[in-house]
């Protein structure tokens, strides 16, 4: 199909979809309205379970099983990327050159790294009390590690980023989440991923039952996963050289 025909076919389909979608929107409850049957029940359940962050309550307590699926999807995607970005037989590894960095950039990175890591630790530890949680903290910690690449060079990043250990951490985080689900059988009428631990008092650090544990497992899986993911992309860009690049 030529580019022109393809565009016209799309525009026709988009017009139909647009009209149908707009018509459907007029049947939705008005924006900003008072009627939120699911939201009201989820917020009430969060308070009942003593989890101040209702979003964390939904993610780990009320729909823990969905989050397990999400976790496995993340695992699968990281695994797929690692397999796709492995070094091919006709490629070889080169040592990335040492790079000179401005002293101000280096100082900025050195100051910012502990701030970023502390922020991540706070977000994961308080994930059940204030906005945050394992997913967000994992991404922030992984970005923090890459300050080493920005403020120094790739060799320094490779030193502080043991990919083999992080591969294991990523898998162990995902496995820990799945294993924590079995704690749900501890109660009499137990079910998988039931938040079985004592719930404590609302707004206290020790509250929310297993939610902080789930957050920690997700933090390990996401943080290590993102570092490993970026490591493979950066390796492709900086270290792996194809046969053509070598001769050219």
């Amino acid at each position: 199909m030529s580019r022109r025909v393809r565009t016209w076919v799309f525009l026709a389909a988009a017009a139909v979809l647009g009209v149908a979608f707009a018509a459907a929107c007029t049947g939705l409850p008005d924006f900003g309205g008072e009627r939120h049957p699911y939201g009201d029940r989820a917020a009430a359940a969060a308070l009942r379970q003593q989890i101040a962050n209702a979003v964390a309550s939904v993610t780990f307590d009320q729909r823990g099983f969905d989050t397990l699926g999400e976790e496995l999807m993340l695992f699968g995607a990281v695994l797929g990327t690692i397999v796709l970005l492995r070094r091919a037989p006709d490629e070889r590894r080169v040592r990335p050159p040492r790079v000179r960095v401005l002293p101000s950039t280096r100082a900025y990175g050195t100051v910012l790294l502990p701030v970023v890591l502390l922020t991540a630790a706070y977000l994961v530890a308080h994930g059940h009390l204030t906005p945050g949680g394992g997913f967000q903290a994992g991404v922030i910690a992984a970005s923090g590690v890459h300050l080493a690449y920005l403020a120094a060079d790739y060799r320094v990043l490779e030193r502080i980023r043991p990919t083999a250990a992080l591969d294991v951490t990523h898998a162990a985080g995902a496995a820990a989440y799945a294993a924590l689900g079995f704690a749900g059988f501890a109660a009499a009428a137990g079910t998988y991923l039931r938040n079985a631990a004592p719930h404590g008092t609302l707004r206290e650090l020790a509250s929310g039952g297993l939610v902080p544990a789930f957050n920690t497992a997700v933090f390990a899986a996401v943080g290590a996963g993102v570092v490993v993911l970026l490591a493979h992309f950066l390796d492709q860009a900086l270290e792996i050289e194809s046969a053509e690049e070598r001769s050219g």
């Binding site: 308070l47 101040a52 962050n53 209702a54 979003v55 009390l129 204030t130 609302l202």
Partner: peptide, 8 residues
């Protein structure tokens, strides 16, 4: 929807 420092 975070009751960290607001009333329930």
């Amino acid at each position: 929807p975070v009751y960290g420092d607001t009333s329930a």
